[in-house]
C-alpha cells in the first residue's frame, strides 16, 4: 500500500503541494474489512440501480 513517500517531497508552491492527503485514520478505514464489505454491497447496489434506471 503506497504511503506519502519521498517521491513527492512537499515542496512549497509545487502544484502537488496543494493536493489533499489522507490521514492515518482514513487509510485505516480504506482497508477495514467490515467497512469495505459494507461499501462493496452498497456500491454494487448503487451501480446496479443506476444502470437499470439509465435506459428504458
Amino acid at each position: 500500500m503506497p504511503q506519502i513517500h519521498e517521491r513527492l517531497a512537499n515542496k512549497p508552491y509545487a502544484e502537488y503541494a496543494y493536493a489533499t492527503r489522507p490521514r492515518k485514520i482514513t487509510l485505516f478505514w480504506r482497508r477495514c474489512l467490515i467497512k469495505q464489505l459494507y461499501m462493496f454491497f452498497k456500491l454494487n447496489l448503487k451501480v446496479m440501480m443506476m444502470v437499470v434506471k439509465g435506459h428504458d
Binding site: I4, L8, T20
Partner: peptide
Amino acid sequence: ESVLAEYG
C-alpha cells in the same frame, strides 16, 4: 490530485 499525490 489527491490520489496522484498519495501515490507520489
